[in-house]
């Protein structure tokens, strides 16, 4: 992967360089990432205030994103015709960066966008799970990833002989990798790489943090400076600013209920139960009586549908359920 050298350390010198307009693009990215932490922001602001005080009329106002968007949108509309014409001969054009975006017509993948890229390796696809929907992608080796809402990966049409390599760009995915010792499966992310031979594990990627949790088998997590082998029941956390890998036992297996549709609850108040369930399926739960949320549930659900899980819970706790579109309404006596 490009751009994966030494991580950039944000220090006073880099901040000064940034403020005086000397930061290169990678450094600017590092600074902006670093500024997402409020502690860092406070520190930065003190230096920025001193910098601005030394030339008050050069203190920047905030960018006006709304105005900018309307101005761009105006252009967008008037350019639409050109846009479509251009994209039709895109496949024929001979750029080094020959990328063609396309949407497969098949309806079952209607909410996904595939982008084919012709680089040196065979065909690549980009899969994005659009908001509000979980998507399953099957690779050429019959490994599977279930992408949570908003996640995106890119992967080749056919895997290479020696490695099975994909890239994960953002979001969360639950991987079920077909066992093949001779062809390791590698996931590149902007923060770290993940290497396996055949396992089940969950990957949650945010802008500055990666969490890998192993449900079955064994997983190796690699950063430029560190590597860690994970066994079942463990998760590794890597932050983009620190290159170390933190390993811990995980407790919240319900986090990847979106993929497994399986949940374990041990004496958990319904309020929490519903939160886990809502996160995993595309529906909402309303309770008529707040006391219902106090009721505690101990149960294990394996590969259940939303309707099934809600009706099982209702039955167990003697509650009534009505369903309206993607809303379940629950009525009943509740618990003190």
């Amino acid at each position: 992967m490009e751009n994966k050298g030494e991580p950039i350390l944000v220090d006073d010198q880099l901040i000064a360089r940034y403020l005086s307009g000397e930061a290169n693009p990678d450094e600017a990215i590092a600074i902006h990432l670093w500024l997402e932490t409020s502690e860092n922001r406070l520190y930065f602001e003190k230096l920025e205030i001193a910098w601005n005080a030394s030339f008050p009329s050069r203190t920047p106002r905030d960018p006006n994103i709304d105005e900018a968007w309307s101005s761009i949108q105006g252009k967008l509309k008037s350019d639409k015709q050109i846009q479509i014409e251009k994209s039709s001969d895109f496949f024929k054009s001979g750029w080094a960066w020959k990328i063609a975006a396309s949407v497969l017509i098949a309806s079952f993948i209607s909410s996904m966008v595939f982008i084919k890229t012709n680089t040196s390796s065979p065909l690549r696809h980009l899969a994005i799970a659009n908001k509000g929907q979980v998507e399953e992608v099957k690779f050429s080796d019959s490994s599977i990833v279930i992408l949570n809402k908003g996640a995106s990966i890119s992967y080749p049409d056919i895997f290479d002989e020696t490695f099975r390599i994909i890239e994960m760009n953002q979001g969360e995915g639950f991987f079920k990798i077909a066992a093949n010792k001779d062809r390791p499966f590698i996931i590149h992310t902007p923060i770290a790489d993940i290497k396996v031979v055949g396992t089940e594990f969950n990957v949650a990627l945010s802008q500055d943090e990666l969490t890998v949790s192993v449900v079955q088998g064994r997983v190796i997590v690699l950063t430029p400076k560190d590597s860690s082998q994970l066994d079942v029941g463990h998760s590794a956390k890597v932050r983009s600013n620190l290159q170390g890998i933190e390993v811990a036992e995980f407790e919240e297996a319900n986090n990847w209920g979106y993929a497994t549709h399986s949940f374990v609850f041990k004496d958990v108040p319904l309020k929490e139960v519903f939160k886990d369930i809502e996160k995993s399926y595309s529906f909402f739960v309303d309770v008529r009586n707040r006391d219902i949320e106090n009721c505690k549930l101990t149960a294990t659900f394996v590969d259940v549908t939303a309707d099934k899980i809600i009706s099982l819970i209702a039955e167990t706790l003697n509650l009534r359920v009505t369903k309206n579109d993607n809303h379940f309404t629950i009525e009943g006596k509740g618990c003190p």
């Binding site: 846009q83 479509i84 039709s88 975006a101 949407v103 497969l104 017509i105 098949a106 966008v113 084919k116």
Partner: peptide
């Protein structure tokens, strides 16, 4: 099987 990029997406 592929059509050019759908504008909306």
């Amino acid at each position: 099987h592929i059509i050019p990029v759908i504008r909306m997406d």
